[in-house]
């Protein structure tokens, strides 16, 4: 389906591409609010751990996973081995496999040319925004929405890391601490409208919160608990989600 729209109506395609690039960049703004202060904090911590400015920035460019980068830097500080750090990163980012599976299922009619870069840019935040804008995936040129949303978030993350490594704590401590709520507020803002439309979605989310809390108490590992809660609570959707919600 995606291929046909690429070959026909090329002028139309360009105008709608610009439209979706704008919309995507706008949808990324809440992520930018969250990524800048967290990126700065990461940059500062990484510098304290002895990473050079190049290494700080390269890690953000190639890994693009906030939580894992924080864990890696604190493990380096504690003198952890290569294998330990890579393994911890793997476990912590395994949740992106589940998230990518969900979003790729939604975008399955798109070509791999789009799907691969979008999948590589998936973080908790870009995944959440992308999932809550499922309609774009069906629209002509809608892939530009995801691409632009991810790229803006990506640059905010890299820029924040660079600023943290270069300038240190540029945001006052009290403000930077308060900005820690930004991404949670965005997750909530993404979730609530769906709950308003379908209360069962709220049930799935609350179930996941409880499972996550329990799993974290048992495993003591953030990566595993998020993966377990997401898969198990997601399974409740097999019975809870109405069919028409699925078909779009």
């Amino acid at each position: 389906m995606g291929l046909q729209t690429n070959t026909v109506h090329s002028v139309d395609q360009n105008t709608s591409a610009m439209y979706f690039v704008h919309r995507g960049a706008f949808a990324a703004l809440p992520i930018v609010f969250g990524y800048l202060p967290i990126g700065i904090t990461y940059g500062v911590l990484a510098k304290q751990a002895g990473l050079s400015l190049t290494e700080i920035t390269l890690m953000s460019v190639f890994v693009f996973a906030g939580a894992a980068q924080f864990v890696a830097v604190s493990m380096m500080n504690a003198g952890a081995l290569f294998v330990e750090i890579v393994l911890a990163t793997f476990v912590l980012n395994l949740r992106h496999f589940v998230m990518s599976f969900s979003i790729m299922n939604r975008l399955r009619s798109a070509s791999l040319k789009w799907k691969i870069p979008i999948s590589l840019g998936l973080t908790d935040e870009t995944f959440s925004v992308a999932s809550l804008y499922p309609k774009e995936g069906q629209k002509k040129g809608g892939m530009w929405f995801y691409a632009s949303m991810i790229l803006v978030s990506y640059f905010a993350w890299i820029l924040g890391s660079l600023a943290g490594g270069l300038l240190g704590e540029v945001i006052p401590d009290a403000l930077s601490q308060s900005m820690g709520i930004a991404l949670y507020a965005m997750f909530i803002a993404l979730l609530i409208p769906s709950v308003r439309n379908e209360w069962r979605i709220g049930l799935i989310a609350v179930l996941s919160m409880m499972l996550n809390y329990i799993a974290y108490k048992i495993t003591g590992n953030q990566g595993w608990s998020i993966v377990l809660a997401t898969i198990l609570a997601g399974a409740s959707g097999i019975w809870l989600l109405p069919q028409e919600e699925v078909e779009e």
Partner: peptide, 10 residues
């Protein structure tokens, strides 16, 4: 399709 909501919760 339920994964996003479960993920947001978690």
């Amino acid at each position: 399709n339920a994964i996003p909501y479960a993920a947001l919760g978690a």
